[in-house]
């Protein structure tokens, strides 16, 4: 049986971890924005795709993955800021349906926009030289670059943890998620906090896009499958919660990876069923940010 082979287990667990970390980078921004303003942005996957495409252009221009890793997420954050200022800001007072549908429209706009600019064919991005090797880990050989992705996720988790716990902005975010009205009454400009968090979320989605580009191919529509997984992570983990997003990513990343191997016919369906079950048993997710009364 495959499951008894330790080598197989290690490789698959690392694969699962890699997906989990990408999902974490994507879901944390979406999750905090959701927790802070009950705002749901279906175009979050589109920002991830834009990140990958911007990395493609940056590598072509500067011939360096690392410059791309710096520039592309900043570009994505700017796209997010413009979207927010022009469009999304006006939807905050509307119900969830308007937010869902407008950002749904943005998905189509995004896919065709990258098709116009970068063409319809899939592109690849070379792995940077420094990371283009294999490493031995627990007796198994594993590509160094994929370990790098896992490391980025872990660094992001630690950074965000300290950012939330130790900085002024972090304290404002926590207060805002906890009780929005009260925080606003304390004189904190919750809209500005929301805007900053939104841009940070876009930036992280951009990072995810850049680092995933050398592993997965870059094509119009690459946002679709990851978007749904990201939404599931947000709901499963509990909107607005850092640890919720982390645990949710880990759970979904692992279940998806192992599910594709063990029961390919039902893997994805199982994940959706898992989400539905969690929504019913714990409507606020596994690790909700807000205390439940």
């Amino acid at each position: 049986m495959m499951l008894l082979d330790p080598g197989f287990l290690i490789i698959q667990t690392l694969n699962g971890l890699q997906l989990s970390m990408l999902l974490f980078l994507l879901s944390i921004g979406l999750s905090v924005v959701f927790g802070l303003m009950n705002f749901i942005n279906l175009a979050h996957g589109t920002l991830y795709m834009i990140g990958a495409y911007l990395a493609l252009s940056a590598v072509r221009l500067f011939d360096s993955f690392w410059i791309a890793l710096i520039l592309a997420p900043l570009g994505v954050a700017m796209v997010g800021a413009v979207l927010y200022a022009l469009l999304l800001r006006h939807l905050q007072s509307r119900g969830p349906m308007s937010q869902v549908l407008v950002t749904f429209g943005l998905i189509f706009v995004g896919i065709d926009a990258v098709r116009m600019i970068w063409g319809p064919l899939p592109h690849g991005l070379p792995v940077p030289d420094v990371l283009d090797g294999r490493m031995e880990i627990l007796g198994e050989v594993y590509p160094t670059y994929r370990l790098f992705i896992i490391a980025v996720g872990i660094v992001a988790l630690i950074g965000l943890y300290f950012g939330l716990e130790r900085t002024r902005l972090g304290a404002m975010v926590r207060a805002g998620v906890d009780d929005r009205t009260m925080t606003a009454a304390l004189g904190i400009n919750i809209d500005r906090v929301f805007f900053l968090v939104f841009c940070l979320g876009c930036w992280l989605a951009g990072v995810a896009g850049v680092i995933s580009a050398p592993v997965f191919s870059v094509f119009p529509g690459m946002d679709m499958s990851i978007l749904i997984l990201t939404l599931i992570v947000v709901v499963v983990g509990g909107p607005g919660s850092l640890w919720g997003a982390a645990v949710g990513s880990l759970l979904i990343g692992m279940v998806d990876t192992y599910g594709q191997i063990l029961a390919p016919e039902f893997a994805r369906a199982t994940i959706y069923a898992l989400m539905a079950a969690i929504l019913l048993l714990r409507p606020h997710g596994l690790l909700p940010a807000r205390p439940i009364h």
Partner: peptide, 28 residues
Amino acid sequence: FAIRTRGIFFIMITLAIGQMVHAYLFKA
């Protein structure tokens, strides 16, 4: 199951139900 939720959670659970059917048909 779905009617027990409201608002954005109803949107999400129906999305999950829809995707469950799609994922099954895609592989069946």
